[in-house]
Simulated scan of single mutants.
Amino acid sequence: MLTEKHTVIVTTPEELLPLLMEAIRAVEEERKTDDVGSQGKRLLSPKDVEYEFGIHRKMLAEWRAEGIGPAYTTFGRRILYERAVVENYIISKRIKTSGYSGI
């Protein structure tokens, strides 16, 4: 026997459309604030590193297993990268090319 009460709302598509648009805008705003918030973080999970720097989590795991890549910290089972360390690691791999000087 069900003891829960359910409410059924009947509406027209014209009344529903503005509600849906408002919900979509709210989700988009939340995503924007999440993006800004993660960029302010000092410690990044492998997922954060992948999202912000484009280095896939599997690649980070391979580098850890091989003892290469940016330095990381473990906290319990969590793996964390310092933002500055990842940025410096990327900069250290920069390859200087000579510019084309002839015509």
Rank of each mutant, 00 (worst) to 15 (best):
P70M: 03
L20V: 15
S92E: 10
A26C: 08
H56K: 08
S45W: 03
I90S: 06
Q39N: 15
T7V: 12
L44G: 01
S45R: 07
R94A: 12
L60N: 00
T74W: 07
I24Q: 03
W63C: 02
E28L: 14
K41D: 08
R25V: 08
T7P: 00
D35A: 14
T97G: 08
T33N: 15
K5I: 10
L17V: 09
R42T: 13
R57V: 07
F53E: 02
R57Y: 04
R83G: 01
A71V: 13
V8S: 01
G102I: 11
E66C: 06
T73W: 11
E66G: 02
K58C: 05
E30V: 10
R25M: 10
V86Q: 00
G40N: 14
K47D: 09
E15K: 09
I9R: 07
T33K: 15
K32A: 11
F53L: 01
L16G: 07
L20C: 13
E15V: 12
E87K: 07
E29G: 13
A84S: 15
R64W: 00
G102F: 13
R64P: 01
K41C: 07
K32P: 01
E52Q: 15
D48S: 09
Y72W: 10
R83Q: 10
T73V: 12
A84N: 13
A84G: 07
I24E: 09
G99T: 10
L80F: 09
P18S: 05
I91G: 02
P13K: 09
L43M: 15
S98E: 14
E87N: 03
A65N: 09
F53S: 01
I91D: 14
A23K: 10
R78G: 02
S38E: 15
R64S: 00
Y72S: 06
W63Y: 09
E4W: 04
Y100T: 10
Y51G: 05
R42E: 14
G37P: 05
I91H: 14
L44V: 09
E87V: 05
F53I: 00
V85P: 00
T74P: 04
V27I: 14
S45M: 03
R64Q: 05
I91W: 07
H56V: 06
R31E: 15
V10Y: 08
G102D: 05
M21W: 04
E28Q: 15
I79R: 01
K96L: 06
E50N: 05
S92D: 12
L60K: 00
Y72P: 01
K93T: 03
L44K: 07
R31A: 13
A71M: 12
K41T: 06
L19A: 03
E62S: 12
